[in-house]
Simulated scan of single mutants.
Amino acid sequence: MNKKIDDLWQARQFIKGSIRNEFVARVVRSRLGFAWIVLYPLAQVAIYAFVLSALMSAKLPGLQIAYAYPIYLTAGILAWSLFSEVVGRCLNVFIENGNLLKKMAFPRLALPVVVVGSAVANNTLLFLSVLLVFTILGHFPALSLLWLPVVTLILLLLALGLGLSLGLLNVFFRDVGQLVNMALQFGFWLTPIVYTLDLLPPVYQRILHVNPMTGIVQSYQAVLVFGRAPEWQILLYPALFGIAVLALAAFIYRRAIDEVVDVL
């Protein structure tokens, strides 16, 4: 493991350059690059808010301000967009870079690290835009924001572990990609983003807590919506789950990475 970390450190210029090139290609060289990063998730917020705002605003008694439900929605979509981007892009990262893997000598783990770095850069732009919108709406979380990097780190552990494991399997079984895309669609609705958890009976609340993203999204909502620290009890399970899937990804990587290059 130490050798892998050393290899990644030696390849840091390649990683930074790749992240910078992706950012430039998406934002600087595209007339609407920045706008698409921000507008797509905010369009989701606008659609769900238009349909459900009258119903859901009354379910947020702890947030007695105007536009309570759109603020609640935005916090959940901010978390989900980062998670789904890392998982979705890791799913095909080895397939899309097959020629690079065969022609260049570099740490293969650098590819998912580039995916994470690029996703974090995009999500940071979205986060800054969200803060601006919150400020315009008269809502600013202030000191509770200090907890957000901790919650985001747990989210990234989970997303990278799942994405890397599934990305390696997808090289050998291409149906994995289709199944994961479908699972992400279900996962969005099985996470309390559009609705609050207390709308459901207790038995369904317990079932939804099996989904590790539930605790992470609730923590984003605690920080960004209610201006308080996340509850460590609901973050413990996602943190342990994230460590477990990252360990699984490391195991699969050690066993299969050479075969991945051969298959590609």
Rank of each mutant, 00 (worst) to 15 (best):
K3T: 14
I5W: 11
D6G: 11
Q13E: 15
F14D: 03
G17D: 08
F23P: 02
R26V: 05
W36R: 07
L39Y: 12
Y40T: 13
A43F: 13
V45A: 02
Y48S: 05
M56T: 04
G62H: 02
A66P: 01
Y69R: 05
G76R: 06
I77H: 00
I77M: 10
A79L: 11
L82A: 03
F83N: 04
S84Y: 01
V86H: 06
R89W: 02
L91M: 07
L101D: 08
K102L: 15
K103R: 15
M104F: 15
F106P: 00
P107M: 06
V116R: 02
V116K: 05
G117A: 11
A119K: 07
S129R: 02
G138C: 03
G138P: 06
L143Y: 14
L145Y: 01
L145N: 03
L145T: 02
W147V: 04
L148K: 06
V151C: 04
T152Y: 00
T152S: 09
L153A: 15
I154V: 15
L155F: 01
L156K: 01
L158W: 12
A159K: 06
G161C: 10
R174H: 15
V176Y: 08
N181Q: 15
M182F: 15
A183C: 07
L184N: 08
F186G: 13
G187K: 09
L190W: 09
L190G: 14
I193Y: 05
V194P: 07
Y195E: 07
L199P: 08
Y204Q: 11
Q205K: 12
L208D: 05
L208S: 09
P212L: 01
M213D: 00
T214S: 10
V217W: 00
V217E: 04
A222G: 05
L224M: 13
G227N: 04
G227L: 02
Q233S: 14
Y237T: 07
Y237Q: 11
I243H: 04
A250H: 12
R254I: 05
R255M: 13
